[in-house]
Write a protein that binds this DNA or RNA. Sequence first.
DNA 1: CGCGGGATTGACT
DNA 2: GTCAATCCCGCGT
Length: 185
Amino acid sequence: MEPLDRDFYRQNTLKVARSLIGKLLVFEHSQGRLAGIILETEAYRGPRDRASHAWRGPTPRTKLMFGPPGFAYIYLIYGMYYCLNVVTEGEGFPAAVLIRALEPVEGLDRMLQNRNGSSHLTDGPGKLCQAIGIDQRLNGTDLTHGPLCITAGRPSRKVERGPRIGVDYAGAWREKPWRFRETAV
DNA sequence: CGCGGGATTGACT
DNA sequence: GTCAATCCCGCGT
């Protein structure tokens, strides 16, 4: 399956966040392929979004969000975990989509090892990075051709929206329903 | 299952 | 020095 192309990521961030539900996130390891269907995302959009890392302007850490679409923005959080974002929209406009949850599809055994046998494999942004083996070495890699990419996956089912998680400090931006999640069966 | 608190480090005030 | 787009563990229900 071909990776999604750069024009997909160039669209409005809310549309990308919604469209990513049901797509397949793939990481080609030297030792094998790990993959999962995307179940939950959050949009971080524009220079005034207080919840976004980019709201104060570009820094060495956040400059990727200001760059061209279709690249991975990976950051360390709480000193212990990584989170994976995909950069969206045009160069100069800071925006990205955080991948928050997956449904494991390929490489279950490796994911279990990476997660030290936990039953919660990929149901959080830090957990899925640990399960798939994503760390800072992949920061800035091109998702349109590289070991890490996103492919068509399967048709998405019903999707619900809500406010973003963990952004209570963001003032009015805290309320925005920019979190997308596949409705549980 | 829900809650409360600790872990741990880099970026920025 | 402060705080963060989080997770884990232990405890109570």
